Amino acid sequence: MKDAAPTARVTHRRRDHGAAQCVLDEAVREGGVPGILAQVRDGGGHWTGTAGVADTRTGRERGPEDRFRIGSITKTFTATVVLQLAAEGRLALTDPVERWLPGILTGKAAHDGTTTTVRQLLDHTSGIFNYTHDQSALRSQESCTPEELVAIAASHPADFPAGTGWAYSNTNYIVAGMIVERVTGRTLTDEIADRITRPLRLTGTSLPLATDPTLPSPHARHYTRLFSPDPDAPVHDATELDTTPYWAAGGMISTVGDLTRYFGALLGGQLLRPEQQRELLTMVQTQNWLPRSTYGCGVSRLLLPSGTAVWGMGGALFGSWSYVYGTRDGTHMLAVNINADWTEGRWQDPIGIFTDLLEAEFSYGCALGFALP
């Protein structure tokens, strides 16, 4: 594998990002990832750093305009649309799922659409089984409709009665996406484009149509070991991927620049009215998820080992792991992507790299009070 020279691009840099660049370099040199790309947006300017390659065959370096699959960061976009619809009075977060999707859950393996609310979908307190835990069912068909994904989940017992616990479930956001389409009569793809990506000029961000497995150019190749912990596991190219099993829960494409701009606008209160902004950031304690984390409506809060708190979301799909986190007011954001789903050396997985990168960029925050709830 060719080890491309690290690259840094700076526009109106307000503070030094040398420590962040060191983490990127080490991720390639010691962590064994093909390539890594990060952007910091802070004080009206931005810094972009890279290390490694976008394509191991050609040796092309990672670039700031690279598109990549963002996995569960898609959930934040879906939640934003739902919260905007709530602000418009077109739905209420207290609405039961049954109101919008009659019969999709009720009476099926202890799931109950009459008591499960829209809010519980968004903050993962619904108890609905996570369909991605049934890989045999997903592998049994070439592509999946949202209805089929929910049917997989509904064939399993609920994790707990709605509102009585917390469990991360991709099914929640498939159902939320279906509700968006039922309420609006339009596709979720169009709603995200009209409400978020076009107004913010996120030109590298989209929710692809079900029939499109490609990544727009420029993009990094996505390399996967199929989440095997074996360091000698074969590496597959997953750049072209059927994303129908992920859709509203994890099917989107973006860039680091678009992600820092979007989360800066969202956390900064530019996309939601005050009532919905409070809902976005009303957190519940997570269980068996990211350490020291809480979860709101498509947004999570992480407490870093240093005690610094950051707000944002992460996502992982075959061959692509991403994080975008920053200050609660969105004025200082960092987005990062690795075009692989493994690490070597001292890190167990890409989250370890991302944590070190966040510490390098935000650890001074304890003195500024960002660690406060």
Rank of each mutant, 00 (worst) to 15 (best):
K2I: 13
K2A: 11
D3S: 05
P6D: 08
V10R: 15
V10W: 08
R13H: 07
R15D: 03
D16W: 03
H17V: 05
G18F: 00
A19Y: 00
Q21S: 09
Q21V: 00
C22T: 10
C22R: 12
V23I: 15
G31T: 01
I36G: 04
V40I: 15
G45T: 06
W47F: 08
G52M: 05
T56M: 12
P64Y: 04
R67M: 04
F68E: 09
I70C: 04
G71L: 02
S72M: 03
V81S: 10
L85Q: 10
G89L: 07
G89M: 07
T94L: 03
T94M: 02
E98Q: 13
P102L: 08
P102G: 11
G103Y: 04
A109K: 13
T114D: 07
T114V: 02
T116E: 06
Q120F: 09
L121A: 10
L122S: 05
F129L: 11
N130Y: 06
Y131P: 12
Y131C: 10
S136Y: 02
L138W: 06
E148Y: 05
L149E: 09
A154Q: 08
H156Q: 15
P157L: 14
P161W: 10
N170Q: 11
G177L: 05
M178Q: 14
I179W: 09
I179M: 11
E181K: 09
T184V: 05
E191Q: 14
R198V: 10
L202V: 08
T205W: 03
T205Q: 08
L207K: 11
L209P: 05
P218W: 07
T224C: 11
R225L: 07
F227S: 14
S228A: 14
D230S: 12
P231D: 13
P231Q: 14
H236A: 14
D237C: 10
D237A: 07
A238F: 01
L241H: 12
W247Y: 12
A249E: 03
M252H: 03
Y262T: 08
G264A: 08
Q270A: 15
L272I: 04
P274Y: 05
Q276K: 04
R278C: 02
L280V: 05
T282A: 12
M283E: 06
N288E: 15
L290P: 01
S293T: 13
G298K: 01
S306Y: 01
G307K: 08
G312Y: 04
G314I: 00
G319K: 09
V324A: 12
D329W: 02
G330T: 05
N337T: 14
A340V: 02
A340D: 04
D341K: 06
D341A: 08
W342E: 08
Q348A: 15
T355P: 01
L358K: 05
A360C: 02
A371W: 01
L372W: 00
